[in-house]
Amino acid sequence: MSTAVESYGADAKPRMGFFTDTTICIGCKACEVACKEWNLIPEDGRLWTGESYDNTSALGANSWRHVAFVEQRKPLKLDGEVAALDAEPLRWLMESDVCKHCTHAGCLDVCPTGALFRTEFGTVVVQEDVCNGCGYCVPACPFGVIDKRDLPRSPDDAPLALPIFGKKEDGRVWKCTLCYDRLKGGHEPACAKSCPTDSIQFGELDELRERADKRLEKLRAEHWNGARLYGNDPDDGVGGFGAFFLLLDEPEVYGLPPDPVVPTAHLPKLWLNTAVAAAALLTGIAVSFFGGRE
């Protein structure tokens, strides 16, 4: 459950992350496109949802950035003058969601192969040459970010060898890597690079947190309705996000959990409980040996 950046010794880098300021998101989806292009993410079907401008719907194995669109009958500002002008208020919230790169990451904790690891930048990444597709990380993420990719079989696949060898369909889990390859080369992640309004800001986490505090102060002074930071608190259930947000409403309005907790926070107690249950099972069976053989 540690962030484990210390284990890199001299190679450890400052913790990098995203500050996604949704108040200046214009819903252009350049982040979604740039992410798909850079990371060679396959197309996974198109479906018209009727949910505002959102046909991506959720983060998943093939969507590592997801722009949420929320249409609300609420005033954008609670300033008396502005509200009076707004006879029938309507605001359009847009938020580019992404993997939170948690300080205490459920996916990383439960991964049994060590495929998921903590990089020298403090981010959480899957090694696709190690992942065996056990799928444990999928329900272990409190945000529903990581998912298994199933691609249709290609006609080139040898039919008989499929179960053991040469399986070309995917079967592994995928999520945002915070563009680990670009970071290694000294570049910012593709989504942040492509964002035309700087709604997605990339940088050292400590610096981003300071910047976010100032921004929130300004928005509050301007009476923006519902402005709040989400995921900036190092004492929350996941130890703070590496990628945090400035929102204009409750997290659940954007499809985010209001109080996420890493599952492994309960694990020490759960292990103890499991051991006691095992001892009880042993005792119960031993007791059954009283009363004769028949």
Binding site: C111, N132, P163, G171
Partner: peptide, 21 residues
């Protein structure tokens, strides 16, 4: 059940007390 059954031995690649699996 694995997505990549041929990699089943990776289960014994590490021992992690944080992972019940």
């Amino acid at each position: 059940d694995l997505g990549r059954p041929e990699r089943f031995l990776n289960m014994l690649r590490v021992f992690k007390v944080t992972s019940p699996m």
